[in-house]
């Protein structure tokens, strides 16, 4: 599988094995590892469940670890792009943590990818750590958007806006960058554990994604296999915890200055 198109942003390379033909409205769904691995688990599950096809990858010497993940004998970057059959959804699957030094360049490369390919929306799937997660049966979902247009789409789903607080990490950078460039970015934030993989919260994120995109993603198998997934995700979670500490992820629990 050879590269048909590539570009570089701040030293981060985006390599396309095919240029996906997008159908409207199109969604670039991001599953970068952060709190509870909510996005990483959700994106990986969606790519498998929807039989998505590998179309590209992201790599960067210097800021990303020099590793290749091998699946079915095929060596890949740990940051892969998959497209669904209808061409309406591309997901970014991550199988390695994003080091703090890579946050800005990778985030800018993702926004540039969305702009070049002309996605209607960038959708970031994220956990938001809550200290009482153990007592919560069904985690709540919040959203925040880069534009009022994207916000209206989420309001129509009847979900609660994330009005006040901090967001830390690549999704924060992507949100700011998208706003500056007038791109529609929606961050879906699901209550989650901070340092334990949280497939139940990933399932909530996918339920919202299904409603947003109109592409049905059955989460039954995800919930059925949640315990095995948690075992498999321990090492990624441990490394992500280290990266989150470098990014000062606990800042999300800090209280911002608010006018009452």
């Amino acid at each position: 599988m050879g590269v048909v198109e590539s570009f570089s942003v701040d030293g981060v390379g985006v390599y396309l094995f095919e240029r996906p033909v997008l159908a409207e409205p199109s969604f670039l769904v991001l599953g970068l590892p952060d709190a509870g691995l909510v996005g990483a688990i959700a994106a990986k599950y969606a790519s498998v469940r929807l039989n998505m096809r590998l179309v590209g990858e992201i790599d960067a010497s210097g800021v990303l670890p020099p590793l290749s993940v091998v699946h079915r004998g095929v060596p890949l970057s740990p940051f892969q792009l998959y497209v669904n059959n209808s061409g309406r959804m591309v997901v970014l699957v991550s199988e390695a943590p994003l080091p703090a030094a890579a946050v800005y360049p990778v985030s800018r490369a993702v926004v540039e990818l969305a702009s070049r390919l002309g996605f209607s929306y960038i959708v970031s799937l994220s956990g938001i750590a809550v200290p009482n997660r153990m007592e919560i049966k069904r985690p709540r979902v919040f959203w925040v958007s880069s534009t009022s247009g994207a916000g209206r789409v989420m309001e129509e789903l009847g979900l609660k806006r994330f009005d006040e607080g901090f967001i830390v990490g690549p999704y924060a950078v992507i949100l700011k960058e998208a706003r500056r460039r007038g791109l529609d970015n929606i961050v879906i934030l699901v209550e989650s554990f901070l340092q334990f993989p949280d497939p139940e919260s990933s399932a909530e994120a996918l339920r919202v994604l299904s409603r947003l995109t109109g592409i049905e993603i059955d989460v039954g198998k995800l919930l059925e296999e949640a315990e095995m997934l948690k075992i498999q995700a321990r090492e990624l979670m441990k490394q992500t915890t280290k990266s989150m500490a470098e990014m000062q992820k606990r800042y999300e629990m800090h209280m911002p200055m608010m006018y009452i």
Binding site: M134, Q195, F196, P197, E227, M228, K230, I231, R234
Partner: peptide, 23 residues
């Protein structure tokens, strides 16, 4: 054997350790 994920939180009078043990 596999190693579980652990968190430790400090409170004024105690530490709370949570161990995640799926399966």
């Amino acid at each position: 054997s596999i190693e579980p994920l652990i968190t430790m939180q400090e409170h004024p009078d105690r530490y709370e350790i949570i161990i995640d043990l799926p399966l």
